[in-house]
Amino acid sequence: MSNRRPYVRSMDGWWKRDPYFIRYMAREVTAVFVALYAIVLLFGLVRLGQGEAAFNGWLQYLKTPWMLVFHLIVLAVFCYHTWSWFNIMPKTMPIIFMGGKRLQPGTITGTGLAASVVACLAVLFIVRGMS
């Protein structure tokens, strides 16, 4: 019979094999911080529903140094999320033609990042106007 004995290599630690994979995993790990931030907001909402004293407790908690460090990290991670989200966008969109020419990946990423800057500024100004 045949002497075939195909060898299947292990996938253990595959993400360490290539810097490209490390960047991919970094992109995916951002989700942990998105979840943590959403949980902090959810706590605030529940506290809001429980009344003024409870909500003020949550507000005081946000002022602790640990929460500042946490939010600074989350801010950096969200910025990376924004960048990576629009960076992969050209791959996730159908081919689009504008004026007979194919829309270039750089244009798509650039437009997305610009939209994000505009949206963030809009939120900042609206909140400023409300307070």
Partner: peptide
């Protein structure tokens, strides 16, 4: 697919 994107690279 989880949009790693290395295939295109």
């Amino acid at each position: 697919c989880t949009a790693v994107g290395y295939c295109s690279e």
